[in-house]
């Protein structure tokens, strides 16, 4: 593991916390720092963890009811009058239901609005496919000027939220519902647009994002015992993509696997494939949901069933090595 990143030593039973909790705490910190930060929510204040901000800054909290389209455009209007709005909902509704409003009134308008999509990914679990966003990275990545961030853990989500408030322009923050392993610490560096090498390696590289970074690290550590050296790169910013780091590891290993809790089309895998096809083509394998909707189940069961578990990542690394 990279000693310069102050990562938590890999543990079999890691401490668990949800990225949405990092968002909630990041909002309060961003709000303390800048009085222009306002938070909007569409009837999901507790579960998007906007509640702490509402309690601390009730006069800067806006409740819109079940109206995500209105929320996106109200936020655009508030930003044009000088505010820094964070809009909070589930990713299936925002940026799902309100996609056109985000496109026209936020992205094309270059409005300084931050969109937080909670309950993203299949690990939403028992709620089922209607509430499991698996296409949101793709939707947001296609919009000109949109920054897209997928934090890997609670601590990174907190830093990403604060960083989103600092930069000018629209940002999409992808958050999960479940408690997931803590990997980074207060001291771990975070910069929008800069990927971090969590583990170095020579034979293959795993580009990953979100809570599955943990599975990728575990797969890479397991593979060491089989004399396979796999690097693990946390691509927390899907857009703008850190092409320099991706190119460096593609050149070094000449075999890459992408890992994300998203459709294998259009998300991190798509972004890496588009970039490497042009810059330095290498064999690629994609870990993600393969053109299907999810279903009800326990998060861990769903991750396994839909092919995003540690064993699936190890197999993908071996497949890509065979294609070298």
């Amino acid at each position: 593991m990279n000693p310069n990143l102050y990562l938590i030593k890999y543990l079999l039973k890691p401490e668990m916390k949800a990225t949405r909790d990092g968002y909630g705490e990041g909002l309060v910190l961003a709000g303390e720092k800048n009085k222009d930060v306002v938070v909007l929510c569409a009837d999901l204040t507790e579960s998007t963890r906007s509640l702490a901000f509402q309690k601390k800054f009730p006069e800067r909290f806006v409740e819109l009811g079940v109206a995500e389209q209105n929320m996106a455009s109200v936020a655009a209007g508030m930003s044009l009058a000088g505010k820094i709005p964070f809009v909070s909902s589930y990713a299936t509704f925002s940026p799902g239901r309100n996609n056109e409003q985000i496109r026209t009134t936020i992205a094309y308008n270059e409005a300084n609005v931050k969109i937080a999509g909670a309950h993203a990914g299949i690990s939403v679990g028992p709620d089922g496919a209607t509430h499991q966003a698996l296409e949101d990275i793709g939707l947001m990545r296609m919009l000109p000027g949109m920054t897209v961030i997928v934090p890997c853990d609670y601590e990174e989500a907190k830093k990403a939220t604060m960083a989103a408030a600092e930069i000018i322009g629209p940002v999409y923050l992808r958050l999960g519902r479940e408690k997931t392993p803590l990997m980074t610490t207060f001291d771990t560096p975070f910069k929008i647009g800069r990927a971090e090498v969590f583990k170095d390696g020579r034979d293959a590289v795993i580009f990953c994002c979100g809570s599955l970074v943990y599975n990728a690290v575990k797969a890479a550590l397991d593979l060491e015992s089989e004399r396979i050296s796999a690097a693990v790169i946390n691509i927390h910013t899907i857009k703008p993509l850190d092409g320099e780091t991706i190119l460096k590891y593609a050149r070094r290993t000449k075999a890459a696997v992408t890992v994300e809790e998203h459709q294998i089309y259009g998300g991190l895998g798509g972004a890496v494939a588009e970039f490497l096809a042009k810059e330095f083509p290498v064999p690629l394998e994609f870990i993600g949901v393969n053109d299907k909707f999810g279903e009800s189940g326990r998060p861990d069961e769903l991750i396994e069933k839909y092919g995003m578990g540690v064993a699936a990542i190890k197999k993908a690394v071996k497949r890509v090595l065979a294609r070298k």
Binding site: V38, A76, A81, T104, T105
Partner: peptide, 18 residues
Amino acid sequence: TSGPLGSGLSQAAGMALA
């Protein structure tokens, strides 16, 4: 920016609230 119908009043309301 406008054109897709039905989103202007939301933006105006956002400005007014801010």
